[in-house]
Design a protein around this nucleic acid. Structure first.
Lengths: 330, 330
DNA sequence: TTTTCTTACGTAAACGCTTACGTATAGTTT
DNA sequence: AAACTATACGTAAGCGTTTACGTAAGAAAA
């Protein structure tokens, strides 16, 4: 049988209460006993059982993170921020890869509830009523990352997608581009799809350019869809001088297509991405992109969970980080 | 107060034992009571407390994964495999980002021990005696991924680094290259450094080419070190026609440097990477690289943990996945 | 009819802790 | 000297489960 607090107490000749006080740094024992008990703890190699502890003080020091795709750079960088902050504050993080699957998501939610996690982060996905009701019922802090849902009392942290897309498009406009394509998520995607399309449209409209849906091509934010979307756009022969892709990965996809076609970047075509992940710096030419402090988002999310601040909605500032994928059009 | 098994029992007019039997699908109750209890469970929204459960049957259904860097593609893809298999088997996974920091690693190890995880995966890093002794003491299945340590009774799963590097170099040789540079980790790195250098050397030697340390440049497996290493190699004016970089990220770094210098790829210089992550497919030209089934490694690792198979050492096969970054030299 | 099984439960101990409360001793006040 | 206080503990209840064991009632076997 594994050694527990009782074994320590027995061997040290004290009660378990005293041992407990000592390991928890509470007052109520002499220096002498402290030394003796600590010595026996070391000798026995005793480790307090967090499960038993959790049972009595209903604390698990654990949070759960639900994300649609662990392998995306966005997720990785976010996770890094979350994990860093969590570790500093003594929390462990359980990851849940939902694969955008509703059933899977509910399974995870149930597991997290059974395991009594003390907070949940819900990343990048549309919050359905099923998830929302369930989470509300759990009655623990939940923070929505890169997504939002007004109708639930959950905190959220994100960038203003529409404003960010507006900035990106505007940036291209300011560089003299007039014929700007958009590679984007579906307009039915109310999180990362529609708002960015609207931001793009707004900028185009304001510049006095006529809106034309032929300038839009749709993808799923991943690489391959980016190459295909770019191919679609190219086939339409629109005389584009720039393209804004609403994820770095899709921008890289577009680049690959363009390279294959022998298009010189950025001389013949400028490209702007979205996210500012490592992909952007690793691209050639390095990608000018919409910066959102992804790691920072994770850190703040963790703080929100611990602060037990509820229903606070943070909109993080965005910016354009300029690299080498955009040329000025004279 | 939260509702527990007692509330359910009271409301349904049975004992907690019966409720327990019902939720655990054990025999010992009539169909009639089952229905009634299940109804009250639903009404009350009762969820069994995994913490309490864990306390009595000392099972947590949780494993811990220690990795040096969550943001690398290797980690992401591995994590995906682990997570997938874990979820299927009813396990949760706690991630621990060690940042290659010994102190941090020990902290995590201690936390994981207190939380009574049922298995630990240790990824990509050198297993020190401090870690090893600690893990051995925990007396739970541990599997070493992409690393190995004979002196401990831990399972491991990895590719034969030396053989893989040999294959990659040999591949280049077979394509007619004779002047092949190597961008690699430090020879002091006994996991991913030295063995790959040795594999490279072996192939070069076998081809009857004289070994020259000027053909080697060192990096840390990440992007920036790749561009710098390539710059170093270029400055030495060795007349290289090919370079083997022992990580995809470093290969992309090399590509970026070469693109900047206007070197045509692969016509003027061929490049081979290592890992076969998404980075390789997203590069331009798409990177020919050493394939290791990363996701599969994660899956198998999880199976090893659950199977409680101990001290089994799996060497996964590797292969070269050909893409567009290598030209044949006539 | 008596004995034996089976079914359908209930009781209570155990898992490893934390913590409220009690108590004995020694020291300090009055 | 009596009363009080502080210190250094120990006792035991409780956290929410699982499960070994006991039991009462009915069915089947003798």
């Amino acid at each position: 049988m594994a050694i527990n607090i009782q074994s320590v107490a027995d061997k040290a000749g004290v009660s378990i209460a005293t041992v407990s006080r000592i390991i928890n740094n509470l007052p109520g024992y002499s220096e002498e006993t402290r030394i003796r008990v600590e010595k026996t703890i070391a000798e026995l190699g005793y480790t307090p059982n967090a499960i038993a502890r959790g049972l009595v003080n209903s604390r698990t020091n654990t949070i759960g993170v639900l994300l649609p795709c662990v392998t995306s750079r966005f997720s990785s960088e976010l996770l890094r921020g979350i994990e860093k902050e969590a570790h500093e504050r003594g929390y462990s993080v359980i990851i849940c890869n939902t694969d955008r699957n509703g059933e899977r998501t509910m399974e995870y939610l149930k597991t997290l509830r059974e395991k009594r996690v003390e907070g949940i982060m819900f990343v990048s996905e549309w919050m359905t009523d099923e998830y929302g009701d369930f989470l509300k019922n759990m009655d623990i802090p939940v923070v929505l990352i890169a997504t939002r849902k007004e109708s639930y009392p959950f905190s959220s942290i994100k960038v203003d997608d529409q404003a960010a897309a507006y900035s990106a498009t505007r940036y291209l406009l300011d560089k003299g581009h007039r014929r700007i394509g958009l590679i984007t998520g579906s307009p039915e995607d109310r999180i990362a799809g529609l708002p960015r399309i609207e931001g793009y449209r707004q900028a185009i409209r304001e510049a006095g350019i006529e809106l034309d849906d032929n300038f839009l091509a749709y993808g799923d934010f991943h690489f391959h869809s980016g190459v295909e979307a770019m191919a679609t756009l190219a086939q339409r022969k629109l005389g584009l001088t720039a393209v804004f892709a609403t994820s770095d990965e899709m921008a890289l996809g577009a680049m690959t297509y363009l390279h294959r076609q022998g298009v010189r970047l950025p001389e013949e075509l400028s490209l702007v991405g979205y996210d500012d992940t490592l992909d952007a710096v690793m691209a050639y030419p390095a990608l000018t992109t919409v910066h959102q402090g992804i790691e920072e988002m994770g850190e703040i999310a963790m703080q929100m969970i611990e602060g037990k601040r509820t229903a606070e909605n943070i909109v993080l500032p965005h910016s354009i980080t300029e690299r080498d994928s955009v040329a000025t059009r004279v």
